[in-house]
Design a binder for these strands. Structure first.
Lengths: 205, 205
DNA sequence: CCTACCGATCGGTAGG
DNA sequence: CCTACCGATCGGTAGG
């Protein structure tokens, strides 16, 4: 008799995951509409019809990925564990953690952009409704702990933080395909973190 | 005899423009691959086959739009004309001009993202090769005029400037579809401009 | 610039 | 989970 592990995935779960992984890879490369169900099936190692035992449609695969692969589940605990003494330390650490993690698994940024371009942000708004209540308190804490902040609205601070990470990744992709990458400093991430904290100007002393 | 205006567009040019405008609208709504040549033809008011008198393929339409509709032609002169006395004034003005213009014609941000998602940034790198030499000198000037800047690398400053504008728009779209828009300040653009100049922290005085 | 057509491929399903 | 199939639609073209 085989040992029955409580949390070992069933065969169905394995196949479902294989389909999601295959689809994710193809979506990343070509976007949603340019990826066919036949390509996904082949990449996942089963026949076209087999997919429909696990997902009711192509869009259902996309939605499954958006939910199952969301990186905030991994990133949020890391950020919560990385409290610094000052708000400056905390924000700096948090931003590095987020960028590092997304650098290691860059798929999600692109997934968000696919959603934006090919679905007009339908799933994105729903996602935000789920995540915002969990992430917003972190920024409320930051604003409360450190009194002398320029940005005191927690939602706005969250937006700037998130937008900054996004902007780092998009410009990073554009720049790395270009000759002007040679003109960049070696540590663009440090510069980004520094700018969000202190701005591009030196204070007038 | 009809008066012959030197710069009045020919009938062919008018049709070509109508095709580009129709395609742009559809690309904005559904992305590239989800838009069909038949939809473009219908929207432009001609038969499918007629398109091929003006464009050799669907991708050629996209490339035509990327070139013809590029907003830097409109934005760059405005920015050059808006010199402020200090670098702070100049950067602040430049960012407002760029955001205002892109707000009035928001198509281009989305076009860039379509390019990123569905073409993996192929045309984007080519575009950058053309634009960077014209825009980079502006930032070189800024860095030269104002000595006490935190970011002294012109290419990096350009990247941050461009990324900031991008981040403003993407987060703006996400937020405006969401309940958390109520939590935002009334002037998010002012906050954005302030942050890029001075950071989220107040200086330690 | 349109009509009528091409082969290819699409998402999805029936039946086993 | 696969085989074989469906109708619909795709980008593109020939011929006028």
């Amino acid at each position: 008799m085989p040992v029955k592990e409580k949390d070992s995935p069933t065969k169905g779960e394995i196949t479902r995951l294989a389909i999601e992984d295959a689809a994710l890879e193809l979506f990343m490369e070509h976007g949603y509409h340019a990826t066919s169900m036949r390509q996904i099936a082949e990449q996942a190692g089963l026949a076209l019809g087999g997919i429909y035992n696990h997902f009711s449609s192509k869009e259902a695969i996309f939605e499954g990925i958006v939910v199952d692969k969301h990186p905030y589940k991994k990133i949020l605990p890391l950020i919560l564990g990385a409290q610094g003494e000052t708000a400056e330390e905390f924000l700096s650490n948090a931003m590095r953690i987020a960028i590092d993690e997304l650098d290691r698994e860059p798929y999600y940024i692109k997934l968000m952009m696919i959603e934006f371009v090919e679905f007009n942000g339908q799933h994105g708004a729903a996602m935000l409704r789920e995540i915002a209540p969990k992430v917003l308190p972190v920024f409320e804490q930051v604003v409360k702990i450190r009194k002398n902040m320029r940005v005191t609205n927690p939602a706005m601070l969250m937006r700037i933080f998130f937008g900054m990470v996004l902007s780092y990744f998009i410009t990073n992709t554009i720049v790395s395909n270009s000759i002007i990458s040679k003109l960049m400093p070696k540590n663009p991430m440090d510069v980004y973190v520094d700018v969000i904290l202190h701005g591009v100007l030196k204070p007038e002393t």
